[in-house]
Amino acid sequence: MPRTLPADDLLSATGVAACSRGAASTRDRCDTGEVLDLRPSCECCDRDLPPESTEAMICTFECTWCVRCVKTCLGGTCPNCGGDLQPRPVRPADRLADHPASTRRVVQTGLHRA
C-alpha cells in the first residue's frame, strides 16, 4: 500500500514544493515562476480549450489536445514525443490574473481525422 505523506513532507521527500493553499507563509509556495502554459486550443483540430476546460489533455512537454482528438486521431499517444496524454489540470480562477493562460495557438496540419 502506498504511503501518503503530509504536505509539509513533500518537499523533503520529492524535492518539489507542495502548494499550500491558505497556509500562513511569507512566500507563496505556488509562485515559483514555472507554471503550465495552458495553451488555448487543440493542436489537432484547433478547438478552443479555455483554462477551465476539462476536455484538454497534455503530454510532459505540454503539447495540448482535446479529448476527442486523443481518442479518434492520436490513439492516446502524443505524436510529437511518443508520451502518454493526461488530463490538463484546471488552474483556479483566482490564479489566472497573476498567471494567465497562453494565447499562442499551435495547429499541426494533417493529424485531424473528422
Rank of each mutant, 00 (worst) to 15 (best):
P2V: 12
R3W: 07
T4L: 03
L5H: 02
L5M: 08
P6G: 07
P6E: 08
P6R: 09
D8A: 04
D8K: 04
L11D: 12
L11R: 15
S12C: 08
S12P: 07
S12G: 09
A13Y: 05
A13C: 01
G15I: 03
G15K: 05
V16M: 09
A17S: 11
A18M: 01
A18W: 08
S20P: 13
S20C: 11
G22E: 01
G22H: 00
A23E: 14
S25N: 15
T26M: 07
R29L: 09
C30A: 15
C30Q: 13
C30P: 09
T32M: 04
G33K: 09
E34S: 06
E34T: 12
V35L: 10
L36P: 13
L36Y: 15
L36D: 14
R39M: 03
R39H: 14
S41D: 13
S41P: 14
S41Y: 01
S41M: 02
C44Q: 15
C44P: 07
C44D: 13
C45F: 13
C45H: 02
R47S: 12
D48E: 15
L49Q: 09
L49K: 03
P50D: 14
P50G: 10
P51S: 12
P51C: 05
P51V: 03
E52T: 15
E52I: 01
T54V: 09
T54G: 01
A56S: 02
M57I: 14
I58W: 05
C59L: 12
T60E: 04
T60I: 09
F61L: 08
W65Y: 14
W65L: 08
V67I: 08
R68V: 07
R68C: 06
C69F: 00
V70E: 08
V70G: 06
K71I: 10
K71S: 13
T72E: 14
T72C: 04
C73S: 07
L74Y: 10
G76T: 00
T77K: 03
T77F: 08
C78A: 02
P79Q: 08
N80H: 10
N80R: 10
N80M: 08
G82H: 02
G83Q: 01
G83E: 02
G83C: 04
Q86Y: 11
Q86A: 06
P87G: 02
V90C: 02
R91Q: 02
P92M: 08
A97L: 09
D98F: 08
H99Y: 09
P100S: 00
P100N: 05
A101N: 06
A101R: 01
T103N: 04
V106M: 03
V106F: 00
V107H: 11
Q108N: 14
Q108A: 05
G110V: 13
L111T: 05
H112G: 05
H112N: 11
R113K: 13
R113S: 06
A114N: 11
